[in-house]
Nucleic acid binder design. Structure first.
Lengths: 142, 142
DNA sequence: GTCGAAATTTGGAATTATTCTAATTCGGAA
DNA sequence: TTCCGAATTAGAATAATTCCAAATTTCGAC
């Protein structure tokens, strides 16, 4: 797994011309930079709005294209909650997501030491998991 | 948790007039019967089509209404996979879902003896989980 | 550097699942 | 039977996402 540093103002120009086999274009760099800039979970539209600040000509379709490219090359994670619009997550380490019902905000949640979910499921021998998503909803204790 | 028997041809008329505090109307009975009739994971539209066989006048909007009522009263589970349309599941016991990438079909997966996912997560003290969904995607071993 | 092919971007249209709306119908209580 | 709130209905509206076809950019070969 590649490790892209989270930083306040990532400079799109600092990304190499290729990441994880994905050719980095100006727009893909910008979209990636937007996502790495904050540790939150923006929607495609949020990303679009933020990207427009530095690249006013970028289109929403391109943002969708870039997101799909980045996700499929594991540079960004896609997060789905029920039927809400997809969100995107810069944290590539093993974790799942908790949505606070009060604020709607999404938080990363990690597993206790070394737990591998796959080991806890009754799956037919040899089953290959290519994708796994855990979504929690609830309220923080007060 | 209520336990509604899975059976080949559930008779909508056999359901009591109220289930889990939800008043059972003709349409809600029919929708519930459709879902209990098969151990699969139909979309709202699938349910609509199947319900129409015995109740040709039912509308899609009603199917959506009924599904939402049944789900919110825990008579049926809603299953979401990425951005695909929601599916509905008659199995109320603790389990998660695996989608076979080859067929697209969804299968129920149970946890190994008594594992409680909540116990494996690093959540702030007192966090109340109201909803939890685990979705897996992959291929069965051959 | 120039050329052509291939990939990417773009704006707008199209799609699709779902929700909303307003009118009608139903079902139970009085 | 009558009344009232809830449920149903058909169709319109919404919203996220995808599709499309044209324009632009990039890349490699020369």
């Amino acid at each position: 797994m590649i490790s892209l540093e989270q930083q306040k103002n990532p400079n799109p120009e600092d990304f190499p011309s290729e990441l994880e086999g994905l050719r980095m274009t100006k727009q893909r760099r910008e979209v990636l930079a937007v996502i790495l800039a904050e540790r939150d979970h923006p929607t495609a539209n949020d990303v679009f709005t933020r990207a427009q600040e530095r690249m006013p000509t970028i289109s929403l379709a391109t943002v969708y294209n870039c997101l799909e490219a980045l996700v499929s090359h594991s540079l960004v994670r896609q997060v789905n909650f029920e039927r809400e619009s997809s969100r995107y997550c810069p944290n590539l380490s093993d974790h799942c997501h908790f949505q606070d019902e009060k604020s709607g905000k999404i938080h990363d949640v990690v597993f206790k030491g070394g737990v591998k979910l796959e080991d806890l499921l009754e799956l037919p021998q040899g089953t290959k998991i290519s994708h796994l998503e855990i979504s929690l909803k609830g309220r923080f204790g007060k």
